[in-house]
Measured scan of single mutants.
Amino acid sequence: EWSVQQVSHWLMSLNLEQYVSEFSAQNITGEQLLQLDGNKLKALGMTASQDRAVVKKKLKEMK
């Protein structure tokens, strides 16, 4: 059960800090993070497919 802050730290740990402000603005918590798919990541401004791939891979490892 991650807070928005913990999601931000997680993104930073993946060197994806450029997305922290948008994820925070949308109040993405750990629970919501686990529901994100490629389209939702795109909607959050994650347009680079490599970045989405990293996030999806890491989320899969956490589930």
Rank of each mutant, 00 (worst) to 15 (best):
L59R: 04
I28N: 02
T47W: 09
W2I: 00
A25H: 08
S24H: 12
A25D: 11
N27T: 05
L14K: 03
K60R: 13
N15G: 15
D51G: 01
L59P: 01
K56A: 12
Y19C: 03
V20S: 12
L11D: 06
S21H: 10
S21F: 05
G30F: 10
Q50K: 15
S3W: 02
S21Y: 05
Q18P: 06
V54Y: 02
A48W: 02
L33Q: 05
D37N: 14
Q32E: 14
I28P: 04
Q6F: 01
T29A: 13
K63L: 07
S24Q: 15
W2A: 02
Q32P: 08
K56Q: 13
D37E: 07
L16G: 02
K57C: 09
H9D: 15
G38S: 15
L34F: 06
Q35H: 11
M46A: 01
Q18M: 09
H9K: 15
E17M: 07
I28Y: 00
M12E: 15
S8E: 14
S24C: 12
E22C: 08
L33D: 05
V55R: 00
L36H: 04
V54I: 13
M12N: 13
R52S: 06
K60T: 10
Q35R: 14
A25V: 08
N27V: 02
K42M: 11
F23N: 06
N15C: 00
F23D: 06
M46N: 02
E61V: 06
Y19R: 07
Q18D: 10
K56I: 15
L33S: 06
L14V: 08
W10G: 02
Q50D: 09
L41I: 05
L59N: 04
Q50S: 13
K40C: 04
G38V: 10
M46K: 02
Q26E: 08
G38M: 08
E17V: 06
L16T: 02
A48F: 09
L11V: 02
L33H: 03
L36W: 01
A43M: 10
Q18K: 15
E22A: 14
I28A: 05
N39E: 15
M12G: 11
E22Q: 12
K58A: 15
S49T: 12
L11Y: 00
K56V: 15
L34Q: 07
E1D: 14
K40I: 00
G45Q: 01
N15V: 00
A53R: 12
A53T: 11
M62G: 04
Q6P: 00
Q26F: 06
N15I: 00
E61Y: 06
V54G: 05
Q5L: 12
N15Q: 10
K56C: 14
T47K: 14
E61P: 01
N39A: 15
E17K: 11
V4G: 03
Q35M: 09
G30W: 07
Q32V: 09
N15E: 09
M62P: 06
V7I: 08
S3A: 01
S21L: 10
Q5H: 11
L16F: 08
T29W: 02
S49D: 13
L44N: 05
G38F: 01
Q35Y: 02
K63W: 07
Q35P: 01
S13H: 03
L11P: 01
Q35F: 03
L14I: 10
Y19Q: 09
M62I: 13
A48Q: 14
K60P: 03
L11A: 02
Q26Y: 00
S49E: 14
S3R: 02
K57H: 11
E61T: 08
T29P: 04
D37P: 06
K58W: 10
D51T: 03
G30Q: 02
Q50T: 10
M12L: 08
L36S: 07
H9Y: 11
K58V: 06
V7E: 01
A25L: 08
A43N: 10
R52I: 12
S8K: 10
N39L: 09
Q35C: 12
L44C: 02
Q32I: 12
V55H: 01
K56R: 13
S3I: 03
W2D: 08
N15P: 00
Q50M: 10
K60I: 09
M12R: 15
L11M: 07
S8W: 04
M46E: 02
F23M: 05
V7Y: 04
L44T: 03
S8Y: 05
M46W: 00
L44S: 03
E22T: 13
W10Q: 06
L44D: 07
L14P: 00
R52L: 13
E17W: 00
V20R: 08
Q32N: 08
A25G: 08
T29R: 07
Y19V: 06
K60M: 14
E61D: 08
K63F: 01
Q5W: 07
K63S: 11
L14M: 11
W2R: 05
M12P: 01
G38W: 00
Y19L: 05
M62Q: 07
S3F: 07
M12A: 14
V20Q: 11
E22K: 13
G30I: 03
L41F: 02
S24A: 15
K42S: 09
T47V: 13
L59G: 03
M12Q: 15
M62N: 01
S21V: 09
F23I: 05
L14R: 01
Q50L: 08
K60A: 15
L11W: 00
L36P: 04
Q6N: 03
N27W: 00
V55T: 05
A48Y: 06
H9E: 15
T29C: 04
K58G: 12
G38K: 12
A43C: 10
V4Y: 10
D37M: 00
Q50V: 11
L36A: 09
G45L: 03
V20F: 05
S13E: 15
S8H: 06
V55K: 02
K40Y: 04
Q35I: 07
Q5Y: 09
V55E: 02
A43T: 11
Q26M: 06
N27P: 07
V54S: 08
L59S: 06
V4W: 05
L59I: 15
S3T: 15
K63N: 11
V55Y: 00
L59F: 03
S21G: 13
L11E: 01
N27R: 10
E31L: 07
Q18C: 10
G38Y: 04
V20P: 10
E31P: 08
V7W: 00
E17I: 02
K57P: 02
Q26W: 01
N27K: 14
Q35G: 11
R52A: 07
S24E: 15
R52P: 02
I28F: 05
N39H: 13
D37Y: 01
L34N: 06
L33V: 03
I28C: 01
E22G: 08
S3Q: 11
G30E: 04
S13P: 01
Q5T: 12
K58R: 10
T29E: 08
E31A: 13
Q35L: 11
L44R: 03
V20M: 08
E31I: 03
S49W: 14
D37L: 00
V4I: 10
Y19M: 09
K63Q: 13
L16I: 05
D37Q: 01
N15K: 12
L34C: 08
A25N: 12
K40L: 03
A43Y: 03
Q5P: 06
Q35V: 08
Y19S: 10
W10H: 00
L44V: 03
Q6V: 01
D51P: 02
M12C: 08
F23G: 04
A48L: 11
E31G: 08
V7Q: 00
K60C: 12
M12Y: 04
Q6G: 04
D51I: 00
Q26I: 05
V20I: 13
Q50Y: 10
K40T: 09
L41A: 03
Y19I: 07
M62S: 03
H9M: 12
G38D: 15
V4P: 09
D51V: 00
E31T: 09
I28S: 03
Y19H: 08
T29M: 04
Q6S: 06
A48G: 11
S8N: 12
Q6R: 06
L34S: 07
Q50H: 15
G45H: 00
L16S: 02
N15R: 09
W10C: 02
V55P: 02
M12T: 14
N39Q: 14
G38R: 10
Q26V: 03
D51F: 03
S21M: 09
S3V: 01
S49L: 10
G45P: 00
V55A: 03
A25Q: 13
Q5N: 12
K58E: 14
L41H: 02
Y19K: 10
R52G: 03
E61A: 11
E1M: 13
M62R: 03
T47N: 09
V55D: 03
D51C: 00
F23A: 08
T29N: 15
Q35N: 15
H9G: 09
A25M: 11
D51N: 01
L16Q: 03
Q18G: 10
G30Y: 06
Q5S: 12
N15H: 12
A25E: 11
K56H: 13
M62V: 09
K57Q: 14
A53Q: 12
A53D: 10
Y19E: 12
T47I: 11
Q50N: 14
N39P: 15
S21K: 14
S49N: 11
